[in-house]
C-alpha cells in the first residue's frame, strides 16, 4: 500500500482549513476540535528579516514518521479524528505551513494529544527548513 502523503505544495490555504472543519459537522461524537496552525514568522538575523521559509523533506521517511505519530496518538488518547498537513517548498511570512486538526469527544484529550503531536512533528520527522532572507541570502534552521 502506498504511504499516505501529508505534504502540501506551498502554503496551506485558510479556506482549506475552514473546509476541513465543515467536513466534520456530521461526526456527532465529536465535542472538541483542537487546531494548531504554524505560521511563518519574520525572524531577524544579523539585521536581516526572514521573508519566507523553504521546506524540504525526505518525504518517504517523513510520511512514515507522521503515520507513526498518528498511530501513537490514537493508541494513547480516545481521539475521533486526527489530520496533519505540512507544507513543502516555499511559504512566505504570514502564511500557514503546518495544520494539525485533532478531534475528540472532550477538550482534555484533544489538547493533550495536540501538545504531544506538535512536539513530535518538530523533532521526529525528516523535514528541514531554510530561511530565505530579504536580501535573498539563506539560513538553514537546525
Amino acid at each position: 500500500m502506498a504511504e499516505k502523503n501529508y505534504f502540501i505544495d506551498g502554503k496551506i490555504e485558510p479556506v482549506f482549513i475552514g473546509e476541513q472543519i465543515a467536513g466534520h459537522s456530521k461526526k456527532h461524537s465529536i465535542g472538541a476540535h483542537a487546531i494548531f496552525l504554524g505560521q511563518v514568522r519574520a525572524d531577524e538575523l544579523d539585521g536581516k528579516k526572514v521573508e519566507a521559509i523553504e521546506y524540504s523533506a525526505y518525504e518517504e521517511m517523513a510520511n512514515k514518521a507522521i503515520s507513526k505519530i498518528r498511530e501513537d496518538a490514537f493508541a494513547k488518547w480516545p481521539l475521533t479524528c486526527l489530520h496533519i498537513y505540512h507544507s513543502k517548498g516555499v511559504v512566505k511570512v504570514g502564511e500557514i505551513s503546518l495544520f494539525v486538526f485533532v478531534s475528540a469527544g472532550h477538550r482534555t484529550e484533544s489538547m493533550e494529544a495536540m501538545q504531544q503531536i506538535v512536539e513530535d512533528l518538530k523533532h521526529n520527522v525528516s523535514i528541514w527548513k531554510k530561511e530565505i532572507m530579504e536580501d535573498a541570502s539563506a539560513n538553514w534552521v537546525e
Binding site: H86, V125, S126, I127
Partner: peptide, 10 residues
C-alpha cells in the same frame, strides 16, 4: 543511506 542534519519541521 540518507545523510540528515537535525530535523526542523513545523
Amino acid at each position: 543511506v540518507a545523510i540528515m542534519p537535525p530535523f526542523a519541521g513545523g
